[in-house]
Amino acid sequence: MENSHIIKEIIVQIVGFMVVFFVLKKLAWGKLMGAIDARRKSIDDSFSDIEKQKKNLENLEKDYRGRLENIEQEARVKIQEASNIGLALAKDIQEKARVDAQKMIDRAKAEIDQDLAKVKINMRNDIATLSALISEKIIHEKLDATMHQKLVDEFIKEIEKV
């Protein structure tokens, strides 16, 4: 009687342990370890993300630093270029102004020469006319046109010599 009860009790205890084992295997080592592993993975992922972002930021910083340096250099080059262009432009303008001024001077000289020549002719004509009139009045005789012109030319030549 006692022997069979002992064996029955041992069997029941074994069965009881098996029940606990399967329950805990499912709940404790299934779900809870799953949750722990999921958390661990999540933390690992977060850390790797942070590392990745840190690396990205470092790359970005490096990139921006490089770009800034390039921008400064480019700015310097552009300022230099602009300065050169400005100088060239100023030189061109100066040259052009000088040429224009020279042209204007030349034109003015030419005009003056023309005007002078015109004035000279007019004046000669006027002097001739005037001298003819004066001469007529002095000598009371009328000079013909050819004679008159000859006298004027001689007079002008004398004046020019003076």
């Binding site: 606990v20 709940l27 779900k31 809870l32």
Partner: peptide, 16 residues
């Protein structure tokens, strides 16, 4: 034995 099984089962069921 059943009480112990029930306690463990209850605790881990509630936790998980």
């Amino acid at each position: 034995g059943v009480i112990v099984i029930a306690i463990l089962g209850f605790i881990f069921h509630a936790a998980s």
